[in-house]
Amino acid sequence: MSGTIAMAAPQRWVPHIDRNRCEGVGDCVVACPQGVLALGTLGLFERRALSLSGQLRGWAHDWRQAFAVQPQDCHACGRCVAVCPERAVTLVAADTNNPAHASIAAY
């Protein structure tokens, strides 16, 4: 009896930025060899979702934070995680149920 074994797709990882911790230092941007991250300005809608300490931190740093602009290019090397002084960057499994991750998880 001959059969095929279905191979599961390899798990994809994407960087997650904790908006309440990020101070926009940019070490993660420099450390990423794939160009996954970039610095940008936190929008008004996102600012409102921050905790009080996150709002104070954001205001103090002109609302500059890291953003995953090319998450599909992440190779999960962990360099961004290692260099973040605020420990605001983590790698999370791409989730097909999350609209922001759907295309990445299927990649």
Rank of each mutant, 00 (worst) to 15 (best):
C22L: 04
C22H: 02
V25T: 14
R64P: 01
C77L: 01
R47I: 07
G35Q: 04
V36K: 09
A88Y: 11
R64S: 03
A93N: 15
A38E: 07
A82P: 01
D27R: 11
Q72E: 12
D95A: 09
R47Q: 08
L44D: 11
L37S: 03
G35K: 06
C77V: 02
A60N: 06
P33D: 05
R87T: 14
Q70W: 11
R64N: 03
Q70I: 10
G78W: 00
F45W: 14
R47Y: 09
E86D: 14
T90D: 13
S53C: 13
D62G: 01
Q34C: 07
V89Q: 07
E46I: 08
P71H: 05
C32S: 03
H75I: 09
F67D: 06
V81E: 02
A60G: 07
P71W: 10
H75Y: 13
D62Q: 02
C32F: 00
Q55I: 04
R64F: 00
R64Y: 02
P85F: 12
A31S: 05
T41M: 06
V25H: 10
L52A: 15
W63P: 00
W63R: 01
F67V: 06
G40E: 00
S51M: 12
A94T: 10
G58T: 02
G26N: 03
G43D: 12
F45S: 14
L56H: 10
A38H: 07
T41Y: 03
L37Q: 00
F45E: 14
P33G: 02
L50D: 07
C77E: 03
A94G: 13
L44T: 13
C80G: 05
V30M: 11
L39F: 11
V29Q: 08
V89H: 10
